[in-house]
Nucleic acid binder design. Structure first.
Length: 165
DNA sequence: CGTTTTTGACCTGCGC
DNA sequence: GCGCAGGTCAAAAACG
């Protein structure tokens, strides 16, 4: 089973610009890739918590006029891999795919299939480097990992330490 | 047969 | 207000 390397960035700075493909430095970790056993390098970028006003997406009018503001922690994984589906131990259901303007590759939207788990994730492939896959996680899992991916949980724990919630 | 993927439509925020 | 860009829904197909 091969492993792919993950480069950790420094703790999120408030002025962290989303420079994809930029120099990421910091600690490192190793992940196991279960699929084809492809070796890949992964850089992690922590996006600072964003204030997102909650609004009803569809016609379901539950919350009207209420400007609920949540601090959503988002962090992006930058993986150098040929496969864009990285098994991180969770089960994801794809619920959308959209092509973004500057990228020739479409962006996929996934959601954790666990009951009541609001974690979303979007996978985007960098058009500049075809081998680079940007996986942006949003939210935090309220349940433990099904699989025994200890490394990943360890890293998640570290990131949760960074983002106050 | 149950679950996931696919895919176009729909909704929303933002800039002009 | 309108149009664009991005995010989500939902129905049907595909998959095991």
């Amino acid at each position: 089973m091969e492993k792919y390397q993950i480069f950790f960035p420094s703790p999120p700075s408030p002025s962290a610009s989303t420079t994809l493909g930029g120099g990421v430095a910091g600690s490192q970790a190793y992940f196991n890739d279960n699929e084809n056993g492809k070796a890949a390098e992964t850089g992690i970028q922590l996006l600072d918590a964003k204030m997102i006003s909650q609004g009803g997406a569809s016609g379901s009018s539950e919350i009207k006029g209420k400007t609920k503001e949540f601090k959503k922690h988002r962090y992006a994984f930058q993986t150098r891999s040929q496969v864009d589906i990285l098994d991180d131990g969770y089960r994801w259901r794809k619920y959308g795919q959209k092509t973004v303007k500057n990228n020739k590759f479409p962006r996929s939207y996934y959601k954790c299939t666990h009951n009541g788990c609001p974690v979303k994730k979007q996978v985007q492939r960098n058009s500049k480097d075809e081998g680079v896959v940007v996986t942006t996680y949003e939210g935090m899992h309220t349940h433990s990992t099904e699989r025994s991916i200890e490394n990943f949980e360890d890293i998640l724990r570290q990131m949760q330490t960074y983002t106050p919630f």
